[in-house]
Computed example of a mutant assay.
Amino acid sequence: MKKYTVQKGDSLNSIAQQFGVKDGQTLRSYHNIYCPLEDLLGHEPVPGKELLIPEDLKYLKEEEEVTDPMNGYDDEAETTEESSEEQQEESQEEKKEDKKKEQQSESGSSEHDGKYFVVQKGMCQCNQGFKLPKFKVTSHQKHYWNDADGKADYLAVTEDDTQLDPTAQPFGQCKLKPSSGGYLPCAYAPVGKWTKTYEKVKIMDKSCVTEVSELMCSTGGKITIFKHGQQSEAGKSQASDANTKEQQVYNPVMDFDEFKEETNDTDQLYYS
Rank of each mutant, 00 (worst) to 15 (best):
A239D: 01
C126I: 05
C186V: 06
F226R: 06
I223L: 01
Y59H: 14
Y73F: 13
L60T: 00
N32P: 09
S109G: 06
Q248R: 11
T162K: 11
S179R: 01
G122T: 03
P178W: 14
S272V: 12
S240G: 00
T195S: 09
E85L: 14
Q169A: 12
E214L: 15
G72W: 01
L57M: 07
P47R: 05
G20A: 07
A77W: 13
S240Q: 12
L51S: 01
Q247D: 01
V253Y: 03
A234P: 00
D241R: 05
G235S: 03
E38S: 13
E246F: 08
G72E: 01
C126F: 06
E258Q: 06
A189E: 09
N127S: 14
E55Y: 04
S272P: 00
T26W: 00
L51W: 06
V191R: 04
V212A: 08
P170I: 10
A189P: 00
D160H: 12
L51R: 01
E82H: 13
Y183K: 07
T219G: 13
T210I: 10
L184H: 02
A148V: 12
F256R: 00
E93Q: 15
T219P: 00
T210K: 04
D147E: 06
E102S: 11
Q120R: 13
G182T: 08
G192H: 09
N127P: 08
I53F: 00
S110N: 11
F226G: 03
F130N: 14
V118Y: 07
C217P: 11
F130Y: 13
V118P: 02
Y116D: 14
C124Y: 08
Y59T: 01
S179L: 01
I223R: 02
G24Q: 03
G220Q: 05
C126T: 06
K202H: 07
F171L: 08
C186T: 09
S83K: 11
D147H: 13
Q87G: 01
Q231N: 15
E97F: 09
K136F: 14
E258M: 05
A152T: 13
T5D: 00
D147S: 13
H228L: 11
V137P: 02
T162H: 05
L12Q: 03
I33V: 09
V46F: 01
G42M: 12
S207Y: 10
M70I: 14
I33M: 06
Q87D: 05
K175R: 10
M1W: 09
Q238Y: 05
F171W: 08
K101L: 13
D149Q: 11
R28M: 08
T79S: 15
E63A: 05
M123H: 15
F226M: 09
F259L: 07
E262Y: 10
W194T: 04
K260M: 05
T266Q: 02
K95W: 03
S83T: 14
T79M: 12
C217N: 10
G172F: 11
K95Q: 09
L51A: 03
A168K: 10
A187C: 11
P178E: 02
Q125R: 15
W194M: 06
E211V: 08
K206S: 10
E258R: 06
C124E: 07
